[in-house]
Design a protein around this nucleic acid. Structure first.
Lengths: 227, 227
DNA sequence: TCAAAAGTGTTGTCGCTACACCCATGT
DNA sequence: ACATGGGTGTAGCGACAACACTTTTGA
């Protein structure tokens, strides 16, 4: 591949959220270069001069994990003078949502170690990455009421308990099971597949599928995923 | 003033909202340089290398209008390759809220003309500024339910009708007068000053003032300005 | 038979909506 | 006296919160 020019005072950082066994996690890199050697940080990188801004985080995520077609959303842009020690760098933060089960680990050249870490147990991060991460989490918590975010975190077929687990993990609240189900089913966007869970050591749950057409109608009715 | 280095592929643009006689307006510049000569555009400019990102739109607004201490909020960052004809420029959009009555016109060197234009009658704009403007308006429409935005648009003392006018102008909806007042007064954050309008050719309205302490309590109760 | 999670209805309360007329003031 | 906006109350309905037990399945 030919060398491409980077805009070297302009970067992107990604907060990659995944959902794993009822826990909301994010993907971090242990830095193996200075500055910040040995510290955890968000995966990020510079933007190429001949690359759309929104393409940069996608490319970075692909290099890191091999995943494509990932849902990404811009969180905000951070540009304090001292946020990066070597020089002045403005960064745009994105969050991504991935199914951890789809995820295939591919360690790129500048990522010595990748770690999924629970959002409730975030360690000290390099530079101002804690602030970037918090902004992304706050944005996700806003969006969960507006968009069908669970779609990007759950498999195609899922139980209502899975759904509730996602909502509880993101909002950090707990909900009454009956009220939650009533509310979700009343939206009319979940289709009972007739199938059930297999190989579970308890009563098997019904599996549902999201119905996009019904979702469009729901939006026209002005309904949301607010709980 | 000493010359400062600009980051020349990185700019900010401002959508400056004002409220004037019941109409929500935004401030535009008629460009007097190429590219886009003669077209309306958002006030914007480059970021200095030794300047915090968030300081840049404040500086630009000050140069343009002489106003300081203005409420500003980041809308988003736009970075398509072809968005600016001369070269690759990534731009961060901010919106600002000003009281048109406070506003003192000061035309800077690269602004041949400034115009307040109703958000319902936006003309063709230079480059991708229509998209930037629309994003800012959408953000404002979200925020109006969350933050006491009217404070930045109205004088210190205002009538409930003024308040309703602001909400209707921003949301582009109309509300029942009785329900609107009931709702707003029930929040307990508006203090009757005992004063009334002067020199109006109809019954004078009571003037209210916003109570910040009561507002903090309201937030703790989890209430919002949703209508 | 036990453990673990799935699944299921009702009732009360509170908040929202809809709706129409009289009042104060300046011209 | 008239035009203009200011100011007020109620009733019905619908949405949400609170709440506990039975069912299914595999180990």
């Amino acid at each position: 591949m030919a060398e491409r020019t980077e805009i070297d005072n302009f970067s992107i950082d990604c907060v990659i959220f995944g959902f794993d066994e009822g826990v909301l996690k994010a993907l971090f890199i242990k830095r193996n270069t200075e500055p910040g050697f040995g510290q955890m940080s968000l995966p990020g990188g510079f933007v190429y001069l001949d690359e759309d801004l929104d393409a940069a985080p996608m490319r970075r995520l692909y290099d890191l994990t091999g995943l494509t077609d990932i849902y990404m959303k811009q969180v905000g842009t951070f540009g304090k003078l001292d946020r990066y020690p070597l020089r002045r760098v403005i960064t745009v933060v994105y969050y991504a949502l991935v199914r951890v089960s789809d995820y295939s680990m591919q360690i790129g050249p500048d990522a010595s170690e990748l770690h999924w870490i629970s959002v409730k147990k975030i360690p000290k991060l390099a530079f101002d990455h804690k602030e970037l991460f918090s902004a992304a989490l706050a944005k996700l918590q806003e969006q969960v009421h507006i968009d069908p975010i669970f779609l990007k975190l759950l498999p195609k077929e899922f139980s209502l308990s899975d759904l509730q687990d996602v909502y509880e993990a993101i909002t950090m609240e707990t909900f009454d099971k009956r009220n939650f189900r009533k509310r979700m089913l009343s939206l009319g966007v979940f289709l009972d597949t007739g199938r059930k869970q297999k190989n579970v050591s308890h009563r098997a749950a019904r599996l549902y599928r999201f119905n996009r057409k019904a979702y469009k109608k729901m939006l026209k009715r002005g309904q949301m995923f607010v709980i």
